[in-house]
Design a binder for these strands. Sequence first.
DNA 1: CGCGCTGTTGAAACTTGTCAAAGTTTGTGG
DNA 2: CCACAAACTTTGACAAGTTTCAACAGCGCG
Lengths: 244, 244
Amino acid sequence: MPPQGATAKVTLEVIKTACSNCNLQELCLPYGLNQMELAKLDELVSTRKRLKRGEHLYRSGQPFDSIYAIRSGFFKTDVLIEDGRDQVTGFQMTGELLGLDGISSEIHTCNAVALEDSEVCTIPFALLEDLSREIHTLQKHFHKVMSREIVRDHGVMMLLGTMRAEERLAAFLLNLSQRFTARGYSPAEFNLRMTRDEIGSYLGLKLETVSRAFSRFQEEGLIAVQQKHIRILNTPGLKKLMTH
Amino acid sequence: MPPQGATAKVTLEVIKTACSNCNLQELCLPYGLNQMELAKLDELVSTRKRLKRGEHLYRSGQPFDSIYAIRSGFFKTDVLIEDGRDQVTGFQMTGELLGLDGISSEIHTCNAVALEDSEVCTIPFALLEDLSREIHTLQKHFHKVMSREIVRDHGVMMLLGTMRAEERLAAFLLNLSQRFTARGYSPAEFNLRMTRDEIGSYLGLKLETVSRAFSRFQEEGLIAVQQKHIRILNTPGLKKLMTH
DNA sequence: CGCGCTGTTGAAACTTGTCAAAGTTTGTGG
DNA sequence: CCACAAACTTTGACAAGTTTCAACAGCGCG
């Protein structure tokens, strides 16, 4: 893990960016905008940051002023409480937004960490609010994105509150598969970017339990695991397991 | 439980309302607005609905077009999945907003049920978006409310993912106490509006576990329980238990 | 006034966590 | 490019916590 304040020099490189020639439009904030509107959004989303694996995009407690769109890479967000407990609250991939939690108090309430070398577009929030007062479509879409985050969280609450270990892991794998698919990758074969411990933290399980569940899925021929590499062999089987 | 479509006649009575003479302003949507802005909000939030205990404000799957501000009463929201599992995702009280989950897909994704006779203000969402493009303060506040919901959900995920039964119940009681306090009620004495089963569902526990935890708290002198009536006798004790 | 819903309590079963040890991979520096 | 250390993963045995099943008590509504 890099030292706290010393990251900006080399790795947080700033690059010119433009939504209008980004291939993530339909996954990201520009969804539904026309050419003219897109040009205005371009002015706003003018900088990119690169992060190396392990670097923090932001930390809990830091002042909030921007949200971030992931252009490439993979992140986790986690919350830490006083007594040392912590939990991964989400894994974010290409096209997803980071930082929405900071809007309420104008202070970030979680940490966002790159799980692989990544690139994000910085979206100054005050400017986004200005622009979304102008562009109805943008406003509407942004509200939907926030609401989708709430719905997603309810899904996680459901998972944590009602599912058993193997059901949780099955749900997790199917969710990843579906999100990879939406991004044009194989639904059945991918590399996990996170450790067993991080998966466990997200799913409310200990890493040993996650490991055992992986082994069990493999024994049953549902998946093939080789460390971080996962191949899903029997999607319906996983679904049935999840539904129980 | 009332029959599905037959509730509108008697109980969903519609009443004229006005934010400008509502005593919940600082807890609710009008927060931070000036007189002129408040007048515009009044035009928008023009109807109230009364609900009897047990009635649904909306159901999962219904088309979304309004959010609701609770004027008086107490609600729960819950999600139901195919295999019959369900979970309470939240308990809402005076001044809190219901329906934010429906924005993303324009379909409600959970049920909202009154746990006591209640009254809500209906806020047509399209009009709220229109007005929040006009009134910067309203826009900002609404974004904060949505973001606060996300932060709250992260707190619940933390609770479900890392806490043991008694810690969860302690956290739950302290949270209720704090919210009652914010509304001018006693921090130490209140009536639960929900059953042990509903508490359990929210906390990811079985009702028996909730009941046992209540008994244990009572034995240890932390609280006095008489059915739904709770007196908190030792707040620091509960806090310590929660922090562990 | 009694029936049903809600809550309490006990004992046994089950799931997951804890602790421990050993194997594997990754990354770094020589 | 290899060697070594650190980080991560797997597996087993046992402990702890929670659920399940069951019986019963109490309150409240009709």
